[in-house]
Amino acid sequence: MPQSPSLSASGSASPGLARILFRRSEIGLVVALLAVILFFALASDTFLTVRNLTNVLGQASLAMIAGVGVAIVFISGEVDVSVGSLVAAVAIPLITVMNATESLALGIAAALALGLCVGIVNGFLAAYLGINSLITTLGTLFILRGGVYLYTGQKAIPDDVMLESFFQLGNGRLFEVVPYPALIAFALLLVFAYVMRHRTFGRKVYAVGGNPEVARLAGYDVKRVKFTCFIISSLLATVSGILLASRLGSAVHVAGLGFEFQVVAAVVLGGVSLSGGVGSLFGAALGVLILSFLSNGLGMLDLATEWQLVITGFIIIAAVGFDEWKRRQP
């Protein structure tokens, strides 16, 4: 017997809404983020201060920017672990060109050119030649890091011209409160989240990552889509590298060490599937924020770095396991 409208509204709509909210990983991540913030706010008197919160946002912004690109590559069904070394590498042309020309624009252009080249190489090898993307980008990671060591002689290349505009890029704050890197990160997040959710390219990325053969039969150029994703990832990692160089005031050979693992961990924690076709950029951003606030809070409790790493690892494994369990539910 069919249900009456009133019965449907009161009986089935509510469970349906709850089911939708439960399945949306972003909701759970928001709750987790708020729980982390609440716990450390109660545990530390200085955690919930404007200065500390904005500092965390500024620190998280670099991983968030790179994480957007890495998440897009993951959703397409590929992997990019070269972002850590790229962050260090792009600072070299940035600082070198700025020192030679006293032009921030030319320095940024040089950094973006290197990032573009790395993205093209990664994308061509993985998408068009079919080389496993993990192996491809792992090789790029070592090549770039080795190149940085060789070029710098394992010494920092200082910013000799000390342009105020360059300093403000990574260290300035809007109204003396909100760090500029955080504003840049959220702006890029909104732009690419819109593209992934509402534009044709985003639908293609999800389709290619979900089932490349079906996407090919639907008329999508699978190789081109994946190629483009690698370029986006490298360019966004370049932006992170530019902001980090601004903060450091130099090109440092050890910059970005372990950065790729931080980004990948946050993206996976945010619900982006390593198998492709599943996840959202907002989820990836929330994953970055959770790990950033967690690291900051544990540091305030004077917990040893070793234990911070152990706890973070357990949380990531638990989050991935829970996500996998949800996917297997009927």
Rank of each mutant, 00 (worst) to 15 (best):
Asn122His: 08
Ala91Lys: 06
Ile135Val: 15
Leu62Gly: 00
Val79Ala: 08
Glu78His: 13
Gly130Ile: 10
Ala71Lys: 02
Ala126Arg: 00
Gly115Thr: 09
Gly123Cys: 14
Gly107Val: 07
Val81Trp: 00
Ile65Gly: 00
Ile65Asp: 01
Leu129Asn: 03
Glu102Ser: 15
Leu104Thr: 05
Val70Ala: 03
Gly130Tyr: 11
Ala60Trp: 00
Ile131Asp: 02
Phe124His: 01
Ala91Ser: 15
Ile92Asp: 02
Asn132Tyr: 02
Ala66Leu: 08
Val73Glu: 12
Ile131Lys: 08
Gly123His: 06
Ile135Ala: 13
Ala60Gln: 01
Leu62Pro: 04
Leu114Tyr: 10
Leu104Trp: 07
Phe74Pro: 01
Ile108Ala: 05
Ala66Gln: 03
Met98Asn: 07
Val81Thr: 05
Ala91Val: 11
Leu112Trp: 04
Val121Thr: 11
Thr54His: 04
Ile108His: 10
Val87His: 06
Leu57Gly: 15
Gly67Thr: 05
Thr136Tyr: 00
Ile92Met: 03
Ala109Ile: 13
Ile72Asp: 09
Pro93Thr: 11
Asn52Met: 05
Ile75Gln: 15
Leu141Lys: 06
Ile72Phe: 03
Ile95Trp: 03
Met64Leu: 15
Asn55Arg: 11
Thr136Trp: 00
Val70Leu: 13
Ala127Asn: 03
Gly67Glu: 07
Ser76Arg: 11
Glu78Met: 07
Gly130Met: 12
Ser82Gly: 04
Val118Ala: 09
Leu57Asn: 07
Cys117Gln: 03
Ala71Arg: 01
Ala127Pro: 02
Glu102Asp: 14
Ala111Ser: 15
Leu106Ile: 05
Ala66Glu: 05
Leu86Ala: 06
Thr96Phe: 12
Ala110Gln: 02
Val68His: 05
Ser76Asp: 14
Ser103Gln: 11
Ala89Gln: 05
Ala60Ile: 06
Cys117Asn: 09
Glu78Gly: 13
Thr137Asn: 08
Val121Gln: 04
Val87Gly: 06
Ile92Pro: 02
Ala63Glu: 07
Ser133Gly: 01
Ser133Ile: 06
Ala88Pro: 02
Asn52Tyr: 07
Ile120Phe: 05
Leu53Val: 14
Ser76Pro: 09
Leu116Val: 13
Leu104Ser: 13
Ile108Asn: 10
Ala71Ser: 15
Gly115Ile: 14
Leu116Thr: 13
Gln59Asp: 14
Ala126Cys: 07
Val56Ile: 15
Ser61His: 01
Leu57Ile: 08
Gly84Asp: 11
Leu106Trp: 10
